[in-house]
């Protein structure tokens, strides 16, 4: 199964990492790798989440993630391409 990277912009508020991690654990999705870093806007952080999911399961993860109030946007980066195709899932999944 292909790895997918989700670039998730979140509000830099306390508990946001717990919200994201908790969502993955309670819905029984695996996280392959997770990193959190700042963005140029101090009120917003970026999480890069690597998941081993595709198709329906990946869509569900994105939809559930987007339901978190502190999640601002999610970009899915399709792997194994020299120039990664980026598509912004936001329009469809605007909660």
């Amino acid at each position: 199964m292909a790895q997918h990277i989700l670039e998730v912009l979140v509000e830099n508020s306390p508990g946001v990492l717990a919200r994201v991690a908790g969502l993955f654990s309670r819905r029984a999705y695996n996280i392959e790798r997770l990193s959190v870093g700042p963005t140029t806007d101090p009120s917003i952080s970026q999480m890069d989440i690597v998941v081993n999911l595709e198709g329906h399961a990946l869509e569900q993860v994105i939809a559930q993630l987007d339901k978190l109030i502190n999640v601002i946007s999610i970009k899915e980066i399709i792997p194994n391409k020299t120039a990664p195709a980026v598509h912004d899932t936001q329009p469809d999944y605007q909660n």
């Binding site: 869509e59 569900q60 939809a63 339901k67 999944y93 909660n95």
Partner: peptide, 11 residues
């Protein structure tokens, strides 16, 4: 109204 319900259990 909830996008996450679409396709959750049934396509």
């Amino acid at each position: 109204i909830d996008p996450a319900e679409i396709g959750k259990n049934r396509f």
